[in-house]
């Protein structure tokens, strides 16, 4: 904490790094979980499908902040103690996976049944058909929605201030209480969130273009 914003920059960047770290872990875990759970929902696996629906409903219909409190303050009562770092990425993963499950389920459902039928008619087993046809076609359709969710997860890493994890908002808040330069420091933090999210969005659009199938009009 120095005289000018430049002196505070290393601390803020360190906070941003921590935000990125828990977000990267949380987003990765939630996307992988979302694809698997979305596929199970799409396939209508009995019992599992209903269990997933309950999970999705619970995590979509309770505030993220309450979920964080449950993980950090309620779990120790039954003997599970999580560090602020663990709480942060687990909360982002569990909360995000509920949304990603629905995003990927919708994407898999949007794959034309005729393409799946064509694969089955060639004698390809159901699981193989999912991996070679439904998954690649469904994932392309879900990139924009999944990116929006990932951006939401990164921004929501600021909630981890409540468990004392040293992410960007926590660091900024600390600097403000010591220097009282509220506008500059929170402004800088906001700019860092903004630029990071813009970059994620741009990377996602690049990914979409890269995966675009030549000749298709629908992918545009």
């Amino acid at each position: 904490m120095g005289e000018t914003l430049l002196d505070d920059l290393p601390a803020l960047l360190n906070g941003l790094g921590n935000s990125l770290l828990v977000s990267a872990i949380g987003i990765t875990v939630s996307v992988v979980l979302g694809i698997a759970l979305g596929a199970a929902r799409n396939a209508g696996v009995p019992v599992l499908s209903q269990a997933i629906a309950v999970y999705v409903n619970v995590f979509r219909c309770t505030p993220l902040l309450v979920q964080i409190f449950m993980l950090y303050f309620a779990l120790p009562e039954i003997g599970i103690r999580l560090s602020p770092f663990q709480t942060s990425w687990i909360a982002l993963a569990l909360w995000g996976a509920a949304y990603h499950t629905e995003i990927f389920r919708a994407g898999f459902k949007a794959v034309p049944p005729a393409e799946i039928l064509a694969a089955r008619a060639l004698g390809m087993p159901a699981r193989r058909t999912f991996l070679d046809v439904t998954l690649p076609l469904g994932l392309r359709a879900t990139i924009p929605a999944a990116t929006t969710m990932a951006i939401g997860q990164f921004r929501s890493s600021s909630f981890m201030v409540v468990v004392g994890y040293q992410e960007l908002t926590y660091v900024a808040n600390g600097l403000v209480s010591q220097t009282f330069r509220v506008f500059e420091i929170f402004g800088m933090a906001a700019l860092m969130y903004f630029l990071t999210c813009t970059l994620i969005g741009a990377a996602s659009r690049g990914f979409e273009t890269w995966l675009r199938v030549p000749g298709t009009r629908t992918a545009r």
Partner: peptide, 10 residues
């Protein structure tokens, strides 16, 4: 072989 071809578009 189907009426609407049903090739894998990707």
């Amino acid at each position: 072989v189907f009426q609407q071809y049903h090739l894998f578009p990707h």
